[in-house]
Amino acid sequence: MKLITRDLSGLLLKIQGAVIISIFYSGAYAQDLEKGQEIYYENGCYTCHGYQGKGTFVLRANILTPTPPVLVKGKAAFLGSEVLFRTYLRMRGEQRHDKPSVEMPHYPASVINDASVANLYAFISTFTEDEPELEDIEAMQWILDWEEKR
């Protein structure tokens, strides 16, 4: 647990730094949604985050993470900008080489280059929260009514 805390504190520092950078820098790479989607699927991002970034109902996404984050802007700090996102992916691999990230796979530039990160970020940025309200879902309303009447 201590190791995780240390990793997280380092992560927070990096994110703070990245926030500062991102104020002045919005990314220099062209963004290709189609290629981004390809990267998302080929790297199996969907296995934990779902095909539309809604996460999954998993017992354990990997060894230590009980619930993967929803990949919708505004729901995860690292989606604030392309730079933040890239920093997040990179630092997970480069922050502590002796104690690699255990929450999700990390992605150094040797695995996904900067241009690919830009495309991936563009694709992820298309994810939205589009769920209907509970009252507007027929099956769920039926379940609630049935429970009340029984």
Binding site: E42, N43, G44, C48, N62, S101, P105, P108
Partner: peptide, 19 residues
């Protein structure tokens, strides 16, 4: 699939072949 992804991540080899 997820276990292999996790391990490839730990080893820094990318997840594109975890399938």
């Amino acid at each position: 699939y997820m276990f292999i992804q996790h391990l490839t991540g730990e080893r820094g080899r990318g997840t594109d072949r975890a399938h």
